[in-house]
Nucleic acid binder design. Structure first.
Lengths: 203, 203
DNA sequence: GCATAATGTGAGCAAATACTTGCATCTGGC
DNA sequence: GCCAGATGCAAGTATTTGCTCACATTATGC
């Protein structure tokens, strides 16, 4: 019994042998569709077809279309959280500007790795019930930023972290949506926006 | 003959007498549904029902569901554009900070008037073909910001305007999505973000 | 080898949805 | 008053979509 009830959005992914491959194929297919055709095209039948799996198999592991999306969102937040936490840890103590750079770089890497998928997942996340695990990951990311600010003596860190995340998100989203792919250029602008908000002397 | 071909997204809204009221009722119903239940709930049948109009009538004026959304988006961009242009005109020559404040206020008024509708329309806009008129309005808004920057001697104004709009959008979106409704508080933070990016001495 | 459980299959169902069509009703100019 | 065109109506169609179910295939412990 590996948690299989509540037929709503939590998935029931028991795994034994080849079934793992089936689950992965489903997730990868869903990601590809989301990336290339957007969430309007994401139908369970298409996902199954692209994954090379029958719909029956799909529904054996994901009780709902939303469960598939939720799993993709969770995986994305997990990776983003881990990247940010690692970046913050590596840069901890090197001073505000260096630490900001590290976090910005992690954020940009995330957005530039697969811009359209990242965007689609963020849009999708809005209308999903947002399971506890994903919510915890988002909170964790905010905590990372708060920690960085506090470590550098910035007061009212939670409120400021909120704004900085919003600003960074807005910039990255607008730029990637416009087709920008230049990491260094975006890095400079993010830095300018964040340090500017913080009132640093700037570069 | 009042432009009625191209059955795709441009609407065919001939108006004579009571038909105007029908069109308005349809748009208002669509806005209410979008605002309260999100775009997933926006079906043509529901729109007609809420508008107190038959689906036949709906399709007489809007050839497509997308046409209704496009019209709502166009109207919203129109209002936003006019507000921003008026604000910029009124504050022109009063110095960078005052002019920024005026533009920020116009933006915030827009977002706070009906946060969920504004957000839904912006999300909807992304996947719509974006007709020429709406595109022109968006360009016009960018021009307003560019003009304000140039008037105050800021170089590379178009690129900076792009970033400032992205930043403002990100902040307003995150805050309203989180339920914030305090105009003054948001105004201060927007100001801080924008003037910070511009490298002004800050408040 | 074989019984048993795990996994895979895909035709098909019920509901929803965008949209059409044929007809009824209203309205304004004469 | 009357009629031609404008407007309104809603049952109905064709399609799509999420999902089920009855059965086939495969893997594994013994």
């Amino acid at each position: 019994m590996t948690a299989k009830n509540t037929p709503i959005n939590p998935r029931k992914t028991p795994r034994q042998a080849r079934s793992r491959a089936t689950c992965d194929a489903i997730l990868e297919a869903a990601a590809r569709i989301l990336e290339r055709q957007g969430d309007e095209a994401l139908t369970t039948n298409l996902v199954a077809e692209v994954a090379g799996v029958s719909i029956g198999s799909l529904y054996q592991y994901y009780p709902t279309k939303e469960a598939i999306m939720a799993e993709l969102v969770r995986a994305m937040r997990q990776q983003m959280h881990d990247d940010m936490a690692a970046a913050a840890r590596a840069a901890a103590g090197s001073g505000l500007e260096q630490e900001v750079d590290a976090l910005v770089a992690a954020t940009l890497r995330h957005h530039l790795r697969n811009p359209s998928l990242a965007h689609a997942l963020e849009v999708a996340e809005e209308r999903l019930p947002l399971d506890a695990e994903t919510a915890a990951l988002k909170q964790g990311m905010a905590k990372v930023v708060v920690g960085t600010l506090e470590r550098n003596g910035i007061v009212d860190a939670p409120a400021i972290a909120f704004d900085l995340i919003a600003i960074g998100h807005g910039l990255a989203d607008a730029a990637t949506s416009a087709g920008e792919r230049d990491f260094d250029c975006l890095q400079r602008r993010m830095r300018r926006a964040i340090l500017g908000y913080l009132g640093s002397p700037q570069v």
